[in-house]
């Protein structure tokens, strides 16, 4: 399932943003953002509310179009490729939304198997086996949850099902939008552990948008702090605590 973890820092960036700008009319949301993330790394994007953290994830998926700059996914600029190529590149990514975004009318089984039915020609048995495998991976008992609807799940279970759906087709890139928001501390820790497990066992490239500093400290190999549309800090969590930038100190205080 996983690539060779030894090659992590030798390989080119899996997701790379170069001088990305985004504006809505006169309002500049992002100003010259540059970030690199490789396989086996977890980048946590931190910052206050409304600074454009989630917007970066939407640019990576091309749910939004950057005003200027390059957004490279495994070396291909998603801002310039054709519509069909965008769909192909999106298959290389898995996204976990803030509200989980599970399909209300589908059971857990149908939610998790959805990408497989869409993009593979696997048999029913193969899909069923894969769904059970990923549900077990996210610490859910398949027999207990397969036939449940999203409305019947707790917040933590919904997040785990959303993660299962995001990883079921084995994408090398995972994007998380506020994965622990609204969860109690114990469930938050469970989700953090799951993100760590994904990195260690599947060697994925993860980008996590959060404003939960404690959570970021646990899971990040690198952190980027956004302020006023710009990255004002980018480095390891240790470097962040050693930073003398005034806003960084205020944020971590």
């Amino acid at each position: 399932m996983a690539d060779d973890p030894e090659s992590t820092h030798l390989s080119p960036a899996t997701v790379s943003l170069h001088d990305v700008w985004l504006a809505f009319g006169d309002h500049e949301v992002l100003r010259g953002i540059s970030l690199d993330v490789r396989r086996g790394e977890t980048l946590c994007i931190l910052g206050g509310s409304g600074v454009g953290k989630s917007t970066i994830l939407r640019l990576i998926l091309r749910l939004l179009h950057a005003t200027a700059g390059d957004v490279l996914i495994e070396g291909r600029d998603i801002t310039t490729v054709s519509h069909d190529d965008v769909l192909e590149l999106r298959e290389r990514m898995g996204m976990v939304f803030q509200g989980s975004a599970l399909f209300d009318s589908l059971s857990v089984r149908d939610n998790v198997s959805f990408p497989l039915y869409e993009h593979t020609r696997q048999t029913e048995d193969e899909i069923d086996a894969r769904v059970r495998q990923v549900l077990s991976f996210v610490d859910l008992e398949p027999e207990d949850v397969l036939e449940l609807l999203p409305a019947e799940l707790s917040g933590g279970m919904r997040k785990r099902v959303a993660i299962a759906r995001a990883i079921v087709h084995e994408p090398p890139i995972l994007l998380f939008d506020e994965p622990t928001s609204g969860l109690d501390p114990i469930t938050t820790r469970t989700i953090d552990d799951l993100i760590l497990k994904l990195r260690h066992e599947l060697n994925v490239c993860s980008i996590v948008v959060t404003h939960d500093l404690a959570s970021a400290n646990r899971i990040a190999t690198e952190s980027a702090l956004l302020f006023d549309g710009e990255v004002i800090f980018n480095g390891t969590p240790e470097e962040m605590y050693a930073s003398e930038v005034e806003y960084v100190q205020a944020f971590i205080a």
Partner: peptide, 18 residues
């Protein structure tokens, strides 16, 4: 509309589904 505001439509798009 409910799918749109709960990001289910975006989820479809991220899974490469129009």
């Amino acid at each position: 509309g409910a799918m749109k505001v709960t990001e289910q439509v975006d989820a479809l798009r991220t899974m490469g589904v129009d």
